[in-house]
Simulated scan of single mutants.
Amino acid sequence: MESIAELQISQARFSSFGTSFMGPTLSFFSHNLAKSTPKNTPLFFLAREGYWLEKAYQQYLSGSDKQGNSCYLLASRAFLFKLLLSDSRSYEYSLKGDFNGSFFDLMRTRFLLSNTEIRQVFSDDIIQELLYLPHDRKKIIDVLTQHKELLDNVISSIKKPYLAYLASLGVTAQSTLHLVDLGYSGTIQSLLTILLDKDTVGHYLISSKPGEHRIADNTATMKGYLKEGVKLGEGYLPLDRSMFLESLLTAPFGQFRGIRFNTFDKNTFDFYYGRKVSSQRYFYELEQVMAGALEYCHHTGKHQIEFNSDELELLLNNYLSKPNMIPRSTKHIFDIDDDVTGNGTVNALQFFGLA
């Protein structure tokens, strides 16, 4: 059993790591958000990464004595893929990438349909058919189109409460929706643009597709504050190894998978999540890491300390490329789930050979 002294040393180690590794990144992003967002414009922070990004933004503002309207918003790619399963405008995003398996597996893993829901909508012949993406994309779209009415019935149980949840946060009252995420291609932003039929502005640390994009009848604008116009695999290390940032910037729960009206109070909601990875099971340790980062954001806001992109890139490149820069005691909190792409749980340090 750890002594109090050993526990304090452990906490200090985690906090110090958070200050040096995550602090500058969160401070840089928060500073640019504060500088670039029109006054009184609410910012909605998305997905699991948004949990800590929103806290960092508020810490930065509190240090600088500025006011900012922000809110954490539950969303995930897979949940929105399911919510828009009967909307053909979403297929550009939900059927992108590779897949090799049965139609049943595609519906279950990528679209979060339960076994019962799949069998409720599709025949056994369809369920058992083997598919390959992108080769069979048109065939899949034809099947989904033919079953649109049945899919609408399945989706209605989550669509109505989710829209009510968004309304309760003030999302639906906005003429133009400002969304914040770590990056990179803006899939969740694009899906929310379709779902809500609203113009959106996406604020990202790194944006692979900056500028204005026409999505259905609306415009989605994407901005990247550290870097724009870079894609995975092109050699830009903060993006190619963004898994390091994603594994630490996680909420205490697993992937957002569903929502229902509360049985006893229709004005409140019950949320459902997927399995937890190590950083969520050991969230009390992650909180120690992020405590150092948040304190640093407050400090830089208070003293108006700024980083330029070159300085932040230099720091990140060192941490993301050199062995032993990241303390071994934090190794277990660098797990991330990659279920949407079928890779399961991945440890960033092991994946890039830095363990």
Rank of each mutant, 00 (worst) to 15 (best):
M1N: 04
S3C: 08
Q8V: 05
S10W: 03
F17M: 11
F17S: 01
T19D: 02
S20I: 02
S27R: 02
S27W: 05
N32C: 03
A34G: 10
K39S: 13
K39A: 14
N40F: 15
N40G: 03
N40T: 11
P42T: 09
L43Q: 10
F44V: 05
L46A: 09
R48E: 01
R48Q: 12
E49M: 02
K55H: 07
Y57I: 01
Y57D: 00
L61D: 02
S64K: 08
S64Q: 05
D65C: 11
C71H: 15
Y72M: 06
A78D: 04
A78M: 09
A78R: 15
L83K: 13
L85W: 04
R89T: 10
Y91W: 14
Y93F: 11
L95E: 00
G97W: 12
F99W: 07
F99I: 06
F104Q: 13
D105M: 11
L106F: 12
L112A: 00
L113W: 08
S114I: 10
N115Q: 13
E117L: 06
Q120C: 06
D125Q: 15
D125I: 14
I126W: 00
I127N: 08
Q128R: 15
L130E: 13
Y132E: 13
L133W: 04
P134W: 06
H135I: 15
D136K: 15
R137G: 03
I141G: 06
Q146R: 15
Q146G: 10
L150D: 11
D152C: 13
I155T: 05
S157H: 14
P161C: 04
Y162V: 05
A164P: 08
A164W: 07
A167Y: 06
T172V: 08
Y184W: 15
Y184S: 14
S190V: 10
S190E: 08
S190K: 11
L191C: 09
G202Y: 12
H203R: 08
Y204V: 07
K209I: 07
G211E: 09
A216D: 12
A216L: 03
G224Y: 04
G224L: 11
E228D: 02
K231M: 03
G233K: 12
G233H: 06
E234N: 11
G235T: 09
L237V: 15
P238V: 08
L239P: 01
R241Y: 04
S242F: 03
L248C: 08
L248T: 05
T250L: 00
A251K: 14
A251Y: 05
P252I: 10
G254R: 10
Q255P: 01
R257Y: 09
G258V: 05
N262K: 04
D270E: 11
D270R: 13
F271D: 00
Y273M: 07
S278C: 02
S279Q: 14
R281I: 00
Y284V: 06
Y284M: 13
E285D: 10
E285I: 09
M290K: 12
A293I: 02
A293G: 08
E295R: 14
C297E: 05
K302N: 07
K302G: 03
I305R: 12
N308R: 07
S309D: 07
D310V: 10
N317M: 07
Y319F: 15
S321A: 06
K322M: 10
K322A: 03
G342W: 06
N343I: 02
L354R: 06
A355W: 08
